[in-house]
């Protein structure tokens, strides 16, 4: 479990993270999204007890990130933004080094390293020098490093960047599997499809502030409106939009199609279908248009930019 309250970090005059409040229960995945320099990595570093918060507090796996820093770091598996591997070492040797740091017994270290490397398709690279690994292999080895000591909390910074689609799927499947083991996972990514597929909750961070937090459904509802339904019919829909107006809000229409917002699709859609059929029009399809995380994210960013501009206006006026 991860819990933070008022987490803030200053570097000199620069406020990198401002008042971050998070709650990530065990067995869930939180995706932190945001542009470069938004404060994602600083937040992760504070949760790893690498950087101390300027104010606020955080607990990771039940340990305070300031008072119990070593225990936090022992309980966390971190995949850093840059894989940062030792290129002159061999794969297994590299993992053995980290295993020693986590005080794992020798037999366990080797067994675990071999198992994980094999699981991530590095079975034939045990004794290969890390410098000879491809980019994707390096990324996988870094991920194996973060899993080596079987930590209850995983902080993954861009886990599938630099990976081919097959490897990326392998890693995504692994993350899903890890979540089922009641692990707490935070991942930062620019891959919104991946975040949508993996995360239970999403936090959007901009200029060090969490500007949106919730599950995909909540965020979509809050930022891009209610689910959008598309109705296709066999005949032209002359005047049907007006007929439906008391029931739903029609946002777009064509000759034989229309789109409407449905706050409660389960209640509204049967009524819409009954009304259309009652008018003697045959329904071909009624489907919900997919709201992607990309739509939601872009909307959040746009709204936040608007608020930022608004906040800046009086300042400029007085300058």
């Amino acid at each position: 479990m991860i819990e933070t309250e008022g987490l803030t970090k200053f570097f000199g005059d620069f406020e990198a993270v401002h008042n971050v409040n998070l709650f990530v229960p065990s067995g869930t995945v939180l995706a932190i999204l945001g542009p470069n320099g938004a404060g994602k990595t600083t937040t992760i570093r504070m949760l790893t007890s690498i950087l101390a918060p300027t104010s606020g507090w955080a607990k990771v796996a039940g340990y305070d990130v300031v008072k119990d820093a070593a225990r936090v770091r022992a309980s966390v598996g971190v995949l850093t933004e840059q894989h940062g591997l030792y290129e002159r070492m061999r794969g297994l040797e590299y993992l053995d080094f980290f295993g020693r740091i986590y005080r794992l017994p020798a037999d366990v270290r080797y067994k675990r390293a071999e198992e994980l490397m094999t699981r991530f398709g590095l079975g034939d690279a045990f004794d290969k020098r890390v410098g000879e690994y491809s980019k994707g292999m390096k990324q996988k080895l870094a991920l194996v490093r973060s899993l080596l000591h079987d930590p209850p909390v995983l902080l993954l910074d861009e886990p599938t960047s630099a990976m081919d689609p097959q490897s990326a799927k392998l890693v995504r499947d692994a993350i899903m599997e890890l979540r089922q083991d009641a692990r707490t996972i935070i991942l930062t990514t620019h891959n919104l499809t991946e975040a949508q597929a993996l995360a239970d909750n999403i936090a959007v961070i901009r200029r060090g502030r969490i500007v949106a937090f919730g599950n995909m459904e909540d965020l979509a509802h809050r930022f891009v409106g209610p689910p959008l339904m598309e109705l296709k019919t066999s005949q032209p829909l002359n005047g049907l939009a007006k007929e439906l107006t008391p029931l739903v809000k029609v946002v777009e229409s064509g000759d034989n199609w229309l789109r409407y917002e449905a706050f409660k699709p389960a209640e509204i859609n049967p009524q819409v279908i009954r009304r259309v059929i009652g008018l003697g029009i045959d329904v071909i399809t009624l489907s919900q248009l997919t709201q992607t995380l990309e739509d939601v994210y872009l909307q959040i960013v746009e709204e936040d930019e608007g608020q930022e501009k608004k906040a800046d206006e009086p300042k400029h006026a007085t300058d």
Binding site: T48, A70, V78, E81, G84
Partner: peptide
């Protein structure tokens, strides 16, 4: 410079 320090800093070593 090679950014290999951060994984080390993420470990429980003091």
């Amino acid at each position: 410079e090679r950014r290999s320090l951060e994984p080390l800093l993420s470990t429980p070593l003091t």
